[in-house]
Amino acid sequence: MRITVDGVEWQVEPGEVLSAALLARGRRALRASPRRGAPRGAFCMMGVCQECAITVDGRIRRACVTVVRDGMVVSLEGAGSDKVRMAGAHGA
């Protein structure tokens, strides 16, 4: 089956979990942390740490608990986009 990652079509296997699929194909950095814009990748793989929260079909989802689906559209500019990066801790 196929998914689209940042506009590029990827061949994936049914049952693959998105975070593992991304890592296996060399995508370590998944997003930027919102405050400092630092690169982040999947960390805990069990749905707790939220570091792999990316945009899947227009919604923010944890890649490590998301099983690939044919036609899935993935954007690695989701949660924590540096569009909401800010100077101070509280944005004030």
Binding site: E16, V17, A20, L23, A24, R28, A29, L30, S33, A38, P39, R40, G41, A42, F43, C44, M45, M46, V48, C49
Partner: peptide, 29 residues
Amino acid sequence: AHERVVPFPGWTLPGVVGLAGATILLKSH
């Protein structure tokens, strides 16, 4: 339970994963 990592400089870099996370990657995926 979930992972505890005592922070050190650079632990947020992509490619750094928890031990339990690495176990899941290896054994499950």
